[in-house]
């Protein structure tokens, strides 16, 4: 597992050189933005069910047959597995966001996920839809543009500070989507 710092170190090691001023400048920017990154990850941590459970519910609402006999979320055991998976994917996205590098998401979550879903008969299209809703919800919560409870209540301008990091979070969800489809 890598973070933004160890990613820089691994690429320097491949060349056998020290990390000098040029490389450190980028990492210093990363350090300067650390509080924004932590706030954004915290916004996810505090809205887990708002993001994950609602995304799975939304996916089911759009396709009501799923919870009927014969559907992929019937019986409740399978619905529970689906809810759990939504939360697991969100958890690894939150790790990647905190680390500033997608390797933890790739190594520990996405590697083999599609194969597992195909083997278990999980409909990939619906899984992708749930991840898409999670992405939209996460971006809305991080930028504080959601209609529900505010992640940065009484802190003015916090959401707008987090626009750049919201784009990074969205890129991790896109990574999940492209690895599934």
């Amino acid at each position: 597992m890598l973070d933004a710092f160890s990613r820089a170190v691994v690429s320097a090691d491949a060349k056998g050189v020290c990390l000098g001023s040029a490389e450190l400048a980028a990492l210093r920017r990363h350090v300067a933005d650390a509080n924004i990154r932590i706030d954004a990850t915290n916004a996810i941590s505090q809205n887990i069910s708002c993001i994950a459970a609602d995304a799975v519910s939304g996916m089911v609402c759009e396709n009501a047959g799923m919870t009927q006999p014969g559907g992929n979320c019937y019986p409740t055991r399978r619905m529970a597995a689906c809810l759990r998976d939504g939360e697991i994917i969100l958890r690894y996205v939150s790790y990647a966001l905190l680390a500033g590098d997608p390797s933890v998401l790739d190594d520990r979550c996405l590697n083999g996920l599609k194969e597992t879903y195909l083997a278990l008969g999980v409909p990939i299209k619906s899984a992708v839809r749930a991840v898409t809703i999670m992405k939209a919800a996460t971006v809305a919560i991080i930028t504080d543009t959601n209609s529900g409870p505010s992640a940065f209540k009484d802190v003015s301008g916090k959401g707008s500070d987090c626009k750049g990091i919201a784009a990074e979070a969205a890129s991790y969800f896109d990574r999940v989507i492209s690895s599934l489809s």
Partner: peptide, 8 residues
């Protein structure tokens, strides 16, 4: 690293 230890 500092961050990956926390995440692990």
């Amino acid at each position: 690293s500092a961050v990956t230890t926390v995440i692990t």
